[in-house]
């Protein structure tokens, strides 16, 4: 554990040093040189990684289509749509997971308890049960404030899982509507390119999606997902702050409070500078008038 911690600190210092050594004059173009100033993963590598994964998915999809072909080079619509639905569900799920991640520490907990072939929903349920058991066993022996925090986390996790499920259901309904439209448009066409198939799909999907976007229900589901993901993260951070504080460490909330005070001071300085500048202007105006009267 200690060794792991030392390694982490070592890596962090190394990264910090690299950032310090980055010449400031390069910052305008730094974003385009394969390294963001925050030292995040190179977008170049990330992009190529995503395209590689996509090309694997597409190759898999192409081979599935070929296997569905009969001797006369036809595919029956239902298996084709089924195959396409699976292909798209995978893309959808990846999108949701990458868009609204859990707080990093919770993701680590999930990774520890994830079982092979279990869905993220099942994993969430698993962690939820675990926290509930923990609360039941340790509850009577813990400080009331800690018990309350654990309860809040449990509620947040439930809200997050519920809103994510509701949002996925919306997406699933859009998928179904889009697939209906897609299969109608497929009639009478010959598939010679995967791109052609996907273009038709994109057109059908965007039509249905834009329709859903105009509905209040969809917007609320989207906002609920965003708000619940943020609430979960915020409460988690508050718990971390509480923990850091009890260890005598500076918390993020304390750091923010210092930043707020710093900004207040900066604003006051600005106002004072403006007042001083006006006074200088006024006094030179009076001096000029005085001089001209005497002259």
């Amino acid at each position: 554990m200690n060794e792991q911690l030392l390694n982490m600190i070592g890596q962090w210092l190394e990264q910090f040093e690299q950032e310090l050594n980055t010449p400031d004059s390069d910052q305008y173009s730094a974003g385009a040189e394969g390294q963001s100033p925050q030292g995040e993963t190179s977008p170049h590598a990330d992009l190529l990684h995503r395209i590689t994964r996509q090309s694997e998915q597409f190759r898999h999809f192409a081979s599935q289509l070929l296997s569905l072909c009969d001797d006369e080079h036809h595919i029956e619509t239902d298996p084709l749509i089924d195959c396409f639905r699976k292909h798209l569900d995978q893309l959808n799920l990846e999108w949701i997971l990458s868009s609204w991640p859990l707080p990093e520490q919770l993701t680590t907990v999930l990774a520890i308890f994830s079982q092979q072939n279990s869905t993220l929903n099942e994993e969430l349920q698993h962690v939820n049960q675990l926290l509930q058991r923990l609360l039941g066993t340790l509850g009577p022996h813990l400080q009331p404030s800690l018990v309350q925090q654990l309860r809040t986390t449990l509620e947040d996790l439930r809200d997050f899982a519920r809103s994510r499920q509701q949002y996925l259901e919306h997406l699933s309904r859009i998928n179904s509507a889009a697939l209906d439209l897609f299969s109608q448009r497929l009639q009478g066409t010959t598939i010679s390119e995967l791109e052609q198939l996907h273009r038709l799909w994109i057109q059908s999907y965007e039509e249905c999606y834009q329709q859903a976007l105009s509905q209040e229900e969809y917007r609320q589901a989207f906002a609920a997902l965003c708000n619940n993901a943020m609430a979960l993260r915020q409460h988690w951070q508050q718990q971390l702050d509480h923990f850091y504080s009890s260890c005598g460490l500076v918390t993020l909330a304390q750091y923010d409070e210092l930043s707020r005070q710093h900004h207040e001071l900066r604003r006051r300085v600005r106002v004072l500078e403006q007042q001083a500048s006006h006074q200088r202007g006024s006094s030179s105006h009076f001096k000029d008038r005085h001089d001209s009267n005497q002259g």
Binding site: S63, L66, I75, E76, T77, T190, I191, S192, E193
Partner: peptide, 13 residues
């Protein structure tokens, strides 16, 4: 049934 051009699909694969 949807007509497929297997040669093109193989080529694309």
């Amino acid at each position: 049934r949807i007509k497929v051009d297997p040669q093109q699909l193989s080529k694309q694969s």
